[in-house]
Structures are given as structure tokens and as C-alpha cells.
Design a protein around this nucleic acid. Structure first.
Lengths: 215, 215
DNA sequence: AACCATATGCGCGATAATCGCGCAAGCTCT
DNA sequence: AGAGCTTGCGCGATTATCGCGCATATGGTT
């Protein structure tokens, strides 16, 4: 085990354990976690029990699952960046103007992570939450995070991620750097209407402009 | 340092470090974190560097701050419980029916943690995000999480948390246990209107009923 | 019902990772 | 420019971690 003195391997292992509770695997047993992480069963047990001790994980019989406390960590990020007080209202205002749900995403390595949503999706088709990840190359919001050249320009993808859905996105640029992206999506029929497009596109651009001052 | 063999103290310390990035303290230096956590500076440094190594924390000069990756952990909880696909649409539907923003909270020790919001607050007055915490005794949504006797009954608080704001909340009960609470709030003037109340209250109750089947 | 195979909980000694002292370098204020 | 404080980080002692291995629980098969 490579052990640079600057890295705490125990802590790193613990975070790997925490991370393996994903959307598909909510209730895990110690051996299951051990298999997923490649850690020794006894080590896994101790790390999971530590999480239980601190209240991040709950135990029912042999199954372990995350508690809402994990959201407090996310809250540290969201509140620190004033998502609730500043960003959310802006996103909501432009979303209402456009009549479509707006989402805000940031880059995390090779994926786009949703950090805020506004304008409720009436249909549960995609079901994204805060913390949901989507690929960068097949989604409008992901591509917007990458297009360093055409900063601020609108990007559109058509059914590349979800069949029949068109996504439009726009980078949020601060000091020449892309710091985030906002996007919206709708069924192709809806989005192809030129009138609607003419209404939605400026809203996205203005919203991105307004948000850029908050990053 | 009490060291039961079942608890990994290093991991526990690391999580304490992670937790000390809260809404008020976004950019922290190693000595600041050491002071807050009571840990040795060198230990703190190693734990923070581990977080940087794993991408949960970013370093700019001497300041460390959370990255969006921390939201991925929250996503594990939210997606696992189908917040995006099932809960959010229901919350949004009843919120739209009531014409007021609805929030969903769960208990975390002695506080209520917001886990979902629907219906955008047009005014940024409170600015709650996913992961925001509020006290249980002075908020309607917090009290609803506690009232084990009158399960499902509506609770109302008047200005006890935020002056001029009335909150109404209702427990989400599953198998006789309170698993969550939904609430809404509005300025007193608005909420005191009997007609509106007659409209909002059933929406909340029906929403709680609908959600109870998903927990 | 009894058996076997597999999965799981957990104690304990060896060992490698952590701890935290202490020095050197950087910063700030007078 | 100097003094006092703050911060970064190397290194040896020590302690918490590791993971083997046994005992128990589980569940499937004859």
C-alpha cells in the first residue's frame, strides 16, 4: 500500500466506504461493502461502525444505510456558496420567466454534478437530485462546462442522453473561466417551437450572466 | 482518547475535519481547522491533504474549501431513497396545488434537516438548502417530527423562528412511526386568511399521506 | 430433520501507519 | 530592520490499525 506521509490511508478508506452507498445500493451489509471496496472485512466493519457511531449511517439488523446527516456535509458546501439565499432565487426567477425547469451543474472530474434545481419538473422522467451526476459529452449541461473557447455560448444536444429530449445549456463564466453551467430540457416537440426557443434562450443567457457575479 | 477497538479514530477525526466546513466558514486554513477541531496541526494537515487528494476539498494558496464532489455523497442518500423520481414530483404537485412552497425534513438528532424543497420561494428570505438545519422546538416542521402522540396532526408556529412568518407542518407517518415531516410557511397576513388556510391544510395532509407510502 | 456449504461476527498479536514534537521558514506589525 | 507570532513539514516513538482465523449464524439440499 503506497503510503505517502501526507495522506491518511485510514481516512481515505473510510471515505471509500461512505461513497459506496450510492443510488443503487442503499442497504449494504459489511461483507458487501468489503467486496465493493476491496477492503478486508474486519477493516470495513470498523469503518462502518465508526460511521454508525457518528450518526452518518444507520444499522438495521445486518443492513447499513445512510442517514439524513450526510446531507449536512452537502449543506456546508451549498450554504457556504450562498445557494439558498442568492443563487436559488435567481435560478427560480429565470426559470419562471422561461417556463421551464432550470438546473445548475458544476464539474467534478469527468462528470457534471447537479448543484441546484429550480422550477419543478411536473413529470418524474429524469428524477435528478442535488448530487446527481451526468456524463459531460452527451448532455448539454455537461458540454457547456467544457467549451472553454466559446465561453457563454449556448449548447444544445438532441436526444443524445435521453431519447426525445432536447437540452439547452449555457456556461457560467467568471473571470474568463467556466465555473458552472445552467441548462434546461424539454421534449423535442416543445423545444422545437421557434417561439418558445426565442423565449427560453435569452432567459438562459441572462440567468448565466446574473449568476456569474455570484461565483 | 477512548479507543474502543470497534471505532476508527483516524476516520472519525477526518469526518470532524470535513464537517467543520460549514455555511459560515467556507475557506479555512490548516491552523484554523486545527483550532476548530482541537486536533494537532500536523494531523489536521494530513487529513485535509487526504481530502484534497480525493477531490473533496480544493486548495487555493493556504485556504481550503469544499468542492461539489461532496454533493455526490448526499446524492447517494437522495437517489437511494428515490427523492428525485418519486418524492420530488409528489411534493411539487401538492405544493402547486396549495400555491405555497413545500419542504420535506427529517430528524437528525436534535435538529430537523431539510431533504427536499418544492415550489420556489420567490423571496430569498430564509434561503434554506438541502442539508440546512433548523431547531425542532421553534419551527413547525421540527415540532411535527416530534409529536409522536398526535401523529399526522397539523402543527403551526407563529413567528417563533422567523418574525412575521407562520409555519404549518404535518408529520409523515409510516407504520406508526414519524419518518419525516412536510411544512410550508408564509407571512402571517397571507396565512391568516381562512380561505387560504382551508386550501393549504388539506394539501399538506394529503401530501403527507401520499409520501408516507414511499418511506 | 439433519447435514453441509457458505456467509458473517469479532478477538488478538504483529506491524505498519499515525501521532505530535520541534525546527525552519514565512508573515506581520512596530 | 527586528521581534514576535504563525505556519509548513520531517522524523522517531508509539499506538491504533490490520487482517488472520476461529466460532457462530444462515440457508439450501438430500
Amino acid at each position: 500500500m503506497a503510503a505517502p506521509t501526507d495522506i491518511s490511508s485510514t481516512f481515505a478508506k473510510g471515505l471509500v466506504v461512505l461513497k459506496c452507498f450510492d443510488g443503487d445500493s442503499t442497504h449494504l451489509t459489511v461483507p458487501e461493502i468489503a467486496r465493493r471496496t476491496g477492503l478486508d472485512r474486519a477493516v470495513t466493519r470498523r469503518l462502518v461502525l465508526t460511521l454508525v457511531h457518528l450518526g452518518y449511517v444507520a444499522q438495521e439488523d445486518r443492513a447499513f444505510s445512510l442517514t439524513p446527516r450526510i446531507l449536512v456535509l452537502a449543506g456546508g458546501f451549498l450554504q457556504g456558496r450562498r445557494f439558498g439565499k442568492l443563487i436559488q432565487p435567481i435560478l427560480a426567477a429565470y426559470s419562471a420567466q422561461a417556463g421551464l425547469p432550470f438546473s445548475l451543474a458544476m464539474q467534478d472530474e469527468s462528470q457534471a454534478v447537479y448543484v441546484a434545481h429550480a422550477g419543478d419538473q411536473d413529470e418524474p422522467r429524469l428524477g435528478f437530485t442535488v448530487g446527481s451526476r451526468v456524463p459531460m459529452d452527451t448532455t448539454a449541461i455537461g458540454r457547456a462546462l467544457l467549451e472553454t473557447d466559446s465561453a457563454g455560448e449556448l449548447l444544445e444536444t438532441d436526444g443524445t442522453f435521453e431519447p426525445g429530449i432536447i437540452g439547452i445549456a449555457c456556461a457560467v463564466v467568471r473571470d474568463g473561466e467556466i465555473v458552472a453551467a445552467i441548462g434546461t430540457s424539454a421534449p423535442r416537440k416543445l423545444m422545437q417551437d421557434p417561439l418558445r426557443r426565442a423565449h427560453v434562450v435569452p432567459s438562459l443567457q441572462n440567468c448565466a450572466q446574473a449568476l456569474s457575479e455570484l461565483f
